[in-house]
Nucleic acid binder design. Structure first.
Lengths: 131, 131
DNA sequence: CCTCTAAATAGTAACGATTACTGTTATTAT
DNA sequence: ATAATAACAGTAATCGTTACTATTTAGAGG
């Protein structure tokens, strides 16, 4: 399948690059519609999937049942606020050593891990102090 | 809300305890139906949710979009085979130290993490050698 | 044991995120 | 310019899950 250029795909990628949070497909749809009022939700999904398959963006699953997307494909971990649901980046060292810990007592082959952290985000923590 | 006893809930819990893999709601439904042919899928979901809320079972999310359930509520990690999709238990030490690593450069409060490992399970590894 | 209240049920409808289908449009190689 | 086909918009369908409703059942109090 030869990839053809598309304005819609460019717009989706560009929008994602402007965001430091990790929008869902629906948020992408809502925002890209400002530039392309007729864009279809299917086009957004298809391109998000395509872009993540070719490694230009990454798909993040944090257990809320909704896929989030991130234009930052560098290795990093995520934090999910259990109060407001926001997804933030964590600036921390790689945890690749845990693959060896997991593999020690396991007969199969471990090729990676998925980790995210949860708790109260800075914004919600400061609001707790007020109440 | 006072909990009343229910045969269906018992059967769901009992079935889960017989399984070392981590069945989905649908698998629970199919199997419990052998004993209760009229049980409804809603009853299965409601009880799985209830049991996990009162801490008698745990709900496992491994990024395939389908909830898995586990009667083993002791702290342990899971492995997901990228070939066959099966979910296995890992016998390994706690990784609670990674919460401190994550919290070091973060202003919010980290209360825990979700981690699962992926790769090729023992069964699929041995089948690869044959081909 | 009988009665009453509310929890739990079966069956079905609705939901939300995502994917698939279809006929049309747009990109790009020739 | 033309032809081939990727990508599109619009819509229908899928799938896991949750919500609704009328009925049944558990179990506490008399």
């Amino acid at each position: 399948m030869i990839l053809k250029h598309s304005k819609q795909r460019d717009a989706i990628k560009s929008f994602l690059m402007t965001r430091k949070d990790h929008p869902t497909a629906d948020v992408v749809y809502t925002n890209v519609r400002e530039e392309f009022p007729n864009i279809s939700l299917g086009t957004v999904y298809r391109n998000l999937t395509l872009l993540s398959e070719i490694g230009e963006i990454s798909r993040i699953r944090v257990g809320d049942g909704i896929d989030h997307f991130d234009a930052d494909i560098s290795l990093h971990y995520h934090f999910v606020c259990t109060h407001c649901g926001s997804v933030l980046d964590l600036n921390m060292e790689s945890l690749s050593h845990i693959n060896e810990i997991a593999g020690a007592g396991f007969d199969g082959k471990i090729s990676g891990h998925v980790t995210y952290f949860y708790g109260t985000c800075p914004k919600c923590t400061s609001q707790e102090l007020l109440s």
